[in-house]
Amino acid sequence: MFFPEQENISSLPSNKVPVKYGELIVLGYNGSLPNGDRGRHKSRFGLSKRSKANGVKPSTVHSAYTPQAAKIGRSTESPIDFVVTDTAIGGPGSPDPQSVQSTISRFACRIACQRSPPHTASIYAAGFDSSKNIFLGEKAAKWRRLDGQMDGLTTNGVLVMHPRQGFTQDSQQGVWREISVCGNIFTLRETRSAQQWGKMVDAESQELVDGSLLDLCGATLLWRTAEGLAHTPTRKHLEVLRQEINAARPQCPVGLNTLAFPSLRRKATPDEMQPWAYLRCGHVHGYHDWGSQRRHHEESRGQEGRQRECPMCRSRGPYVPLWLGCEAGFYLDKAPPTHAFSPCGHVCSEKTAAFWSRIPLPHGTHTFHAACPFCALPLGAEPRYVRLIFQGPLD
């Protein structure tokens, strides 16, 4: 992904802090990549004002018939600012995305930011090769417009959805569209790689708004503006909420042992005090095994094998450990984490859970489904999220 800026304005003073335009946050990574954020491989990317603009203008069109003739760059090429790999669905313990063949175009998209207020960011399909030319693959759909300018789509497409009413407690889902190389808006193709492009939508813009979703066919990213992030809970705020929950000393209604959410930095293996929940009803317990080896064997087979009957209300459904959602950029408000997604068990505020449970995210070449933003696991049948019911200490 390449992020040019428009307007060649003079360089910033060396002692001045760069202006921040916003951040791109990759869905499915709850605060960091499994092996940590390193270099250009991160779970979130900050876009700031460069010391010198590097915007681009249309130029000559060249046709290259072989990859060798095009001198295609790799992800290590200098024109590429950020590297986004395919999202490993399910979070910790999922297969390494680098071990799976990627469906993301090597030069997926460009984002151009205005250097002067209001610092509008616009998205375009395709990026730059090693010669700093915009490159489209041989199988990509491309055409010449009536004005003579070339336009086209990446092989698997770059999709965008702008939420209605912004990224707030009142946010509603928008409509998924496809972006072209020139930034034109089209309805979706029949499949992601179909040669026939959709109909142009003149009434819509390629300008990103707070909460816009970008899908690269393998990874989905959330755009948060600097202004939007200023009203979003911070990691420190989420830590305070975690400590407040633990300070209330919730207890398992069966074992009567005290429960506590682990540190936000630890997100892999449940500990002895980890809260577990029955996601059909929301009753929170500590982990317990009712003694049957056969049942224990069934529960150890993964999410589907964790179907359990709640001892409080007898409802039957997924029985999973609860994990706090650590990526603050996914939250729509600063309310306490009171609800959990099903079947993954990631916990966040009610408004946040309600919003993401309604958003259809692209999956594969032609399907959509709602998913947990923290781990990208598809949400199950109703209820897609549940209000958690904690029991306080008996003393």
Rank of each mutant, 00 (worst) to 15 (best):
P262G: 15
P262C: 15
L264D: 01
R265A: 15
R266S: 13
A268Q: 12
T269R: 11
P270D: 12
E272K: 10
M273T: 15
Q274L: 04
P275N: 04
P275V: 13
W276C: 08
A277K: 04
A277S: 09
Y278E: 08
H283M: 06
H283Q: 08
H283I: 06
V284L: 02
H285I: 08
H285T: 15
H285Y: 15
G286Y: 04
G286T: 07
H288T: 06
H288S: 14
D289Q: 08
W290I: 05
W290Q: 14
W290T: 10
S292K: 05
S292N: 09
Q293L: 15
R294V: 15
H297R: 15
S300K: 14
S300Q: 14
S300E: 10
G302P: 01
G305A: 07
G305T: 12
R306Y: 10
Q307S: 14
Q307I: 14
Q307W: 13
E309I: 10
C310V: 03
P311S: 03
P311E: 07
M312F: 01
C313A: 04
R314Q: 09
R316M: 03
G317E: 12
Y319I: 14
Y319C: 05
P321D: 13
P321L: 11
P321A: 14
L322T: 05
W323I: 13
G325H: 04
E327G: 02
G329I: 02
G329V: 01
F330K: 00
Y331T: 00
D333A: 07
K334W: 02
A335R: 12
A335H: 08
P337L: 12
H339M: 10
H339C: 12
H346E: 05
V347W: 03
S349I: 06
E350D: 10
K351P: 06
T352R: 00
A353H: 00
F355C: 06
F355A: 03
S357G: 07
S357L: 11
I359R: 01
I359V: 15
I359S: 03
L361G: 03
L361W: 08
H363L: 11
H366R: 15
H366T: 10
F368A: 04
H369V: 11
